[in-house]
Amino acid sequence: MSSKEAIQKQETKTPEGVERTKAKRTFAPVVDIIETEKEIVLMADMPGVDENSVDITLEKNVLAINGGVEEKAYEGHSLAYSEYRTGDYARSFTLADEIDKDNIKATVKNGVLRLVLPKAKPAAKKIAVKAA
């Protein structure tokens, strides 16, 4: 395991002057994005999130990932030592490729979100240019 960025959670950046309505902390999940021939696969580390608490939207070319994490407290226990904080997750991406919006698949396993975004077949017909 390497790099301190991945060891310490980074809070989600918001545009200047814009604040969230919830006073809860929000973190930007670390992601891997892999492009294959037919699809784009995104994996995001979101510990504490399950299939019901994750919310994905794709509007125009902006893919937004949101995940809610319930703050857990242990009865009769107090937090004596803490190295990480918990909070919701939020991160958005602008997609370059045309995505087949109807066939996006999302799964969550062991706190990792896996999104498969199939590339749309090119709608426009390619026109071959002939030398005159």
């Binding site: 510990p47 242990y74 009769g76 226990h77 107090s78 937090l79 004596a80 990480y84 062991n110 706190g111």
Partner: peptide, 17 residues
Amino acid sequence: NLWAGENDAVLTAELPG
């Protein structure tokens, strides 16, 4: 994170995937 109780402690760690 370490949660301390009277007779035990609960240690939590985020280990996704």
